[in-house]
Design a protein around this nucleic acid. Structure first.
Lengths: 141, 141
DNA sequence: ATTGACCTTACCACAATGGGAGGGTGGTAT
DNA sequence: ATACCACCCTCCCATTGTGGTAAGGTCAAT
């Protein structure tokens, strides 16, 4: 069993030492072994978990999702349906966020296209941000 | 000049009273009039700015961008090029984020499609998150 | 014995938003 | 008058994921 320091674990997994400690503090990973001088030392199993977390993060999973995924990974009796359900929900969130961003981008592109972008002050972008009318909209009369 | 309370301003602009106070605290909007009892009262001009902020926020602009956009809106001698530059930079950021999300979604969809999602434990999603090998990658020998 | 590279904990910060505590104000209903 | 309710106020804390910084301990080599 190889043991590495936190800086080495960071270099191997691509997760900053700062974040590794943070993952430990929120209970996402188990507390690693400590040498007499209180230095953390990570085992292969620890490194596996960190790598798992790294890949999950790269796919945009939240810590809460990662917690569940790690737990399922460890559970030999898991059903793949549980994993898939987490993934599908996350996919839906990703698609929703991407669609929202794309909608903003589309709107802005249309506005930017109609903005001449020279020294003159008139600009359809600002006009679009300008509220058209502030009437006394009594929502509660 | 109509003056409305913060709750009315919130109803009109769709920005929570909480956020309106926050915008004031960070200097995004000017401090509104106060009545003797320290209650905030918003003028049409204040409401305009809040509406402007609301629309900018809906397009995903950061507070810093909004600060500049508002300042340009007020500046009669602005050049539309300045506004367009902010918009184009923001569009690039939006597209980049959307592309990143879409890439995650694509990867996950591929994995989810190959996961049978039943009671059996084997799952390509978990396999993808599983680091393939933890060799002793001595980055610093 | 000093330097420099590592490690430790413990704070603070970000963007944008919400929640809640604890207290003041004002109008209305009894 | 008094109780009640709706509104307002200021503070503080939480979120998510990441980074910074400070102040100190440890260790190997010079």
């Amino acid at each position: 069993m190889t043991l590495v320091t936190i800086a080495q674990a960071s270099a191997i997994t691509g997760i900053s030492a700062k974040m590794i400690r943070h993952y430990e503090s929120i209970g996402l990973i188990a507390a690693p072994l400590r040498t007499e001088n209180r230095y953390r030392h990570y085992s292969d199993s620890d490194l596996h978990d960190l790598g798992f977390i790294r890949r999950s993060r790269d796919l945009g999973f939240s810590f809460e999702d990662i917690r569940q995924l790690l737990s399922l990974w460890r559970d030999r009796g898991r059903s793949s349906a549980e994993v898939k359900a987490i993934a599908l929900r996350h996919i839906a969130e990703l698609d929703q966020k991407a669609a929202a961003l794309a909608a903003m981008s589309r709107t802005l592109k249309r506005l930017a296209a109609s903005c001449h972008g020279d020294d003159r002050p008139d600009c359809p972008i600002l006009e679009a941000l300008d509220p058209p009318f502030i009437t006394e909209t009594h929502t509660n009369p």
